[in-house]
Design a protein around this nucleic acid. Structure first.
Lengths: 338, 338
DNA sequence: CCTGGCACTCTGGTCGTCCGAGTGCCAGCA
DNA sequence: TGCTGGCACTCGGACGACCAGAGTGCCAGG
């Protein structure tokens, strides 16, 4: 077990390293933090911390830098979440309130996160599966060709073409539209399948094929996880990554372009609060030298999507976590209001 | 006026520099290209080319590199567009044909362009203003709240909320929907304003306010240039930019995030064929060390949007232009079919 | 107008050297 | 037992000298 002071030393190392981006030595530590002990003592503590794998030295006779394990201990035990200041909160709120539609909310959120944290921001669009249906609309584009439009409570709109097995009359269409809406409007997506399963029975035999086709298209839309979109921003902040630059940045850019990777990344974070994945804790190899701070957000009490930032493992964890948490909260509010 | 051989020398310099990324000297030139003259002669030509501002030397006693002006001459006079090979064409076609909807077409196009050119690809969504209307739909979400859905021939869907000044009956709604569609379906967006201007007159006085509101929302949607979206990809290719890396890459990333900048950039290219903007020819400062190769594409004979790539001025212009042109052509075909 | 030759000028890499930061260890002290 | 000051040691980074090579400009001759 590590003594209290050793934890203090680790904390100091993390803080200094995050600030200076340079390995931190025993002397500098005692000068900058009032630990009340001499450099020599600190050196002993450092040796112990290194033994345990919390810190490492790039080469002999250089200072120490935290390892992933060290950062992990830091975020778990040594640092809280730094709350946003009042002015910051108001700024967040003001900025988000200007949004005119869902796309705009997401776009603003991305910008905001990127600016606040000075890192790469990732915001997932509110997921369909956890939302509720506001309205389902059917349009006849041609006698045997319909367009299905699905509007969610979060303001998201999905549309699909439906090719009918047989022409479908205007009356039947109106009927289907009405029945469909009366059953599913206001209901959660996950409940929709059983709410509509017996719907074809209410129609004439010749229309049943079309009704079934429409319904299966609808269900398809609901479960199509791969349709979960996301928006990223602040990639210019990648230039602040470090000196070893090109080697690190390339895989990160590649990963950021793979929405699948990012979605998986966000999806893995299951905890209720802010989740931090540090360095090698990220499954994706290209992100092994980055940390991901993410959190769920939602219009009600429940999370309908995730947002977060990707940055170097050497990041200001308390500040970043605070910003991510605050933004998520206010986005939730905005979504609930609209 | 520059002699024929001097142009040959310039061409050789550009080609070599693009290949090696290193200043090219007179000796290497004569070895790699059969110019039929000695290095000394080439040196004289180089001096002349430098005098004219087509090439420059990073420092005394280094080889020469082309200037923006040199590239410009190269592109205009010395190099054609390198056509894609047969297999490449088939690959492009196959890849694009797998697309299921407009989003997918654009996404695939971006990937394709980025892969073919190994640079950053930018694809603008088919612009609303030059498309035609397939269908306009109105949904009543609440007594005095409508949703307007606009579907274009390119498959794009735009939706807007409309808050009505007064409750609007179901019958009036159906009436408006029918009249609206009969007037604008199949028409070009640019024609819509005059097609609907007298529409409110056909309605009862108490409905006219709502009808006007709906119409103005519709027109707003049509002209809202800022709604022109675009998709970018291949940012990882930025790492191949050069050695001086961080300084160059940062403004480029920033510019890429500003959709407005990119749209303006694409919009500036007015020529019918492939347009090339080299270095300082780009209005945006952050892109002064990049070249932009762009071209219009469209579902019919007419261009409805642009696509292109952004890369270092030191790029393979003939190959890039060929790839951009080919992709644009096939995307146009796909859009026309769907 | 082209060419070979020549003197000149840089840049980039390599090799020592030196300095300082930082370490590990040890003996002494509370 | 745990902290401290002292000391010798190590290593990386900066600095300067040096050299080789590539490239140039210029000139005189074909």
């Amino acid at each position: 077990m590590l003594s209290e002071r050793r934890l203090q030393v680790l904390r100091a190392i993390v803080q200094d390293y995050v600030g200076t981006e340079e390995p931190v030595g025993s002397k500098a530590l005692t000068e900058r933090h009032s630990l009340g002990v001499s450099p020599a003592t600190v050196r002993n503590d450092m040796a112990a911390l290194e033994e345990e794998g919390f810190i490492a030295q790039p080469h002999t006779s250089a200072g120490r830098i935290p390892t992933d394990k060290g950062y992990r201990l830091f975020v778990d035990k040594l640092a809280g979440v730094k709350p946003m200041t009042g002015p910051e909160r108001r700024a967040i709120q003001n900025f988000l309130e200007g949004a005119v539609d869902l796309d705009d909310v997401v776009a603003r959120t991305v910008r905001l996160l990127a600016q606040l944290t000075r890192q790469v921001a990732v915001v997932q669009y509110p997921s369909l599966t956890r939302s509720t249906v506001r309205h389902v609309e059917l349009l006849a584009l041609a006698p045997a060709r319909l367009m299905l439009v699905l509007i969610t409570d979060t303001g998201r709109v999905e549309q699909r073409m439906v090719d009918c097995p047989a022409p479908f009359g205007e009356a039947s269409l109106a009927d289907l539209r009405a029945r469909l809406n009366s059953r599913v409007a206001g209901r959660r997506f996950s409940d929709v399948p059983k709410l509509v399963e017996d719907l074809p029975d209410a129609f004439d035999p010749e229309d049943r094929g079309t009704v079934s086709t429409v319904l299966s298209t609808l269900l398809e839309t609901l479960v199509e996880e791969n349709e979960e979109r996301l928006m990223i921003g602040g990639t210019a902040n990648l230039t602040r990554f470090g000196h070893d630059f090109p080697l690190v940045i390339r895989p990160v850019l590649e990963a950021l372009e793979e929405q699948v990777v990012l979605l998986k990344l966000l999806g893995e974070a299951k905890e209720p609060g802010v989740t931090v994945r540090i360095g090698h804790e990220n499954a994706h190899e290209g992100l092994n030298s980055t940390s991901v701070v993410s959190v769920g957000y939602g219009s009600g009490g429940e999370a309908v999507a995730k947002l977060g930032v990707v940055g170097p493992t050497r990041m200001d964890y308390p500040g970043t976590m605070g910003a991510v948490r605050a933004v998520a909260r206010y986005v939730g509010q905005i979504l609930a209001e609209s």
